[in-house]
Write a protein that binds this DNA or RNA. Structure first.
Lengths: 202, 202
DNA sequence: TATTATACCTAACGCTTGTTAGTTTATCAA
DNA sequence: TTGATAAACTAACAAGCGTTAGGTATAATA
């Protein structure tokens, strides 16, 4: 791991914990194991470091999301598309996606940093909205749209379906607390189950 | 308005905009129209001011929530309970509650401040969870429970129903943007309509 | 081997931070 | 009218801030 990457990784963690204004260059440097002045070998200012972090994390995040949605075989269909066809499959997929976002160190830090800065930094606010609201809703809307066209789901507004499917996961993630993990997972399963019963054509 | 209240009100606004660490005592004082030292006539430290703000806002918030749920006549039934019985009533209530939280200056500032500090200040984090997640879910769970007992809703898990009713409003509030207000309102109405069609016994 | 580049360092700069001490001004009861 | 209380003020403190200039040691290049 290069020093530059170590700085970025440490900055992400500290900004997530204490916020941009709550972390000084000296604290960051100390955590990395260097002196504050050395950070300026890699970044021209604290703000530039933050912006660089946003861009870097966005890239990494997009790659992860791509991988989570593995294309199966030669068709354009995705894991989620297959899973959506059975209640248990959909449950399992929702739970594992949820657990990834709730437990993966990088994903958690990134989300916390964005949330903490979203009202103070325009780019952070936009990025949060894109990554955790617009993109998931867009993706799921398309998915449900396809499944409706295939006659596998009832003919309702796919945007609203996406909202109703995703929003409970979003809320549960926002209130995630590891001491209640099992309870939360049960809620997700029940939610998916009711959602499924409601919309899946049978 | 007393100076103390003016300090609290201004602090809420500035903390919501820029965060606790992004606002100095001198900036706060300037906005109030006094010198920084004078704030210490009312609060012993910046941190105590913040804690006082949390407590004060919690009180005020609880009073507001009580009023929003006006008891009708002599019965124990509430406005929401009546509204829940017709789709249009429920739509209107959901929209007006949403607009209150999205537009009322105090509610907006309070929410933003709590969100911005929720990972840095334990009390802020707990308060956010209580006020914007646990309490609404608890209240709506009880409501749906009653309506199920009265045979007016289908017999499903009222906790999950509350989650499915409330989470979309929570997500839309989190991504609220006044330029898209009409679109959001339409989404809320459609969501409530689908929710209603799904669970109301007819 | 001499030179250059890299990666770190120390020391300091000007400024801002939260906070305190001591002082002035206005308000009101005795 | 005097004296006390409250609410503001000025001035300063020690500490911390982001940042810069310039130095040193190590490793690669000529």
């Amino acid at each position: 791991m290069t020093t530059k990457d170590l700085i970025l990784q440490t900055a992400l963690r500290l900004f997530a914990e204490r916020g941009y204004n709550g972390v000084s260059m000296r604290e960051l440097a100390k955590e990395v194991g260097i002196k504050a002045a050395s950070i300026y070998n890699y970044f021209s200012s604290k703000e530039e470091l933050f912006n660089h972090l946003l861009a870097e994390m966005q890239n990494r995040y997009e790659q992860i999301v791509k991988k989570l949605n593995i294309p199966m075989g030669k068709s354009k269909e995705t894991a989620l598309q297959y899973a959506a066809l059975s209640e248990e499959g959909l449950q399992e997929l929702a739970v594992s996606l949820f657990l990834y976002f709730a437990k993966d160190e990088f994903a958690v830090s990134f989300r916390k940093m964005l949330i903490g800065e979203k009202y103070r930094n325009l780019a952070a606010g936009d990025l949060f909205k894109d990554m955790f609201i617009k993109e998931p809703l867009k993706y799921q809307t398309e998915l449900f749209q396809k499944l409706i066209e295939q006659g596998k789901l009832l003919d309702a507004d796919p945007k609203i379906m996406a909202l109703q499917f995703y929003a409970p996961l979003f809320l549960l993630l926002e209130s995630y607390d590891e001491t209640q993990e099992e309870e939360i997972i049960q809620s997700i399963k029940k939610h998916v189950s009711q959602f499924s019963r409601m919309y899946v054509r049978r």
